[in-house]
Amino acid sequence: MKPGEVAIIAGFKDEYISVKLMEMGCLPGVPVRFNFTAPFGDPICISVSGYELSLRLEEAATISIVQ
């Protein structure tokens, strides 16, 4: 995904992190927008469920998406 793009969350690859992400509103079927990255490319900022969330790349990598 590139900054500015929108995708739909399809599922998660890491069960432990997925629970935390889902509690924060990152649910399967919900659209996310990739807003921007921090200066060294990590962490990143996304918009989901009407607010901004920051997460590390390794955490973001556990989310699978469909565009």
């Binding site: 992190i17 935390k20 992400l21 607010y51 969330l53 920051s54 590390r56």
Partner: peptide, 11 residues
């Protein structure tokens, strides 16, 4: 304990 940075960026 795993290190997380799943953090809200408040308005």
């Amino acid at each position: 304990e795993r290190s997380f940075l799943i953090m809200e960026l408040p308005a």
